[in-house]
């Protein structure tokens, strides 16, 4: 398994956010935010983390 396999991780946010039936609901709420809202906000952060992981894993040792 080469470094390129890490890129598959980048597909996850597409699946998680492009299928509204997953998350178009109000419960469970968090800090007053219906699920629909906090779920999408959470994916902003999770996606940034996934990109960071892929960046670190696929970085060339001497280049950038």
């Amino acid at each position: 398994m080469g470094k390129r396999a890490w890129y598959w991780l980048l597909l996850i946010p597409f699946v998680a956010t492009l299928w509204p039936p997953f998350y178009a609901r109000s419960k469970p709420a968090l800090f007053g935010f219906p699920f629909f809202y906090w779920y999408q906000f959470a994916w902003v952060i999770l996606t940034a983390l996934l990109v960071l992981v892929v960046y670190l894993a696929t970085r060339e040792p001497h280049g950038d």
Binding site: L10, P13, T17, Q40, F41, W43, V44, A48, V51, V54
Partner: peptide, 20 residues
């Protein structure tokens, strides 16, 4: 209402795409 929030997943999934 809710339709406006498509902008959140939009400005989220744009980045993995741009990364590549």
């Amino acid at each position: 209402g809710a339709l406006a929030f498509f902008a959140v997943p939009y400005a989220t999934i744009a980045y993995p795409f741009v990364f590549l």
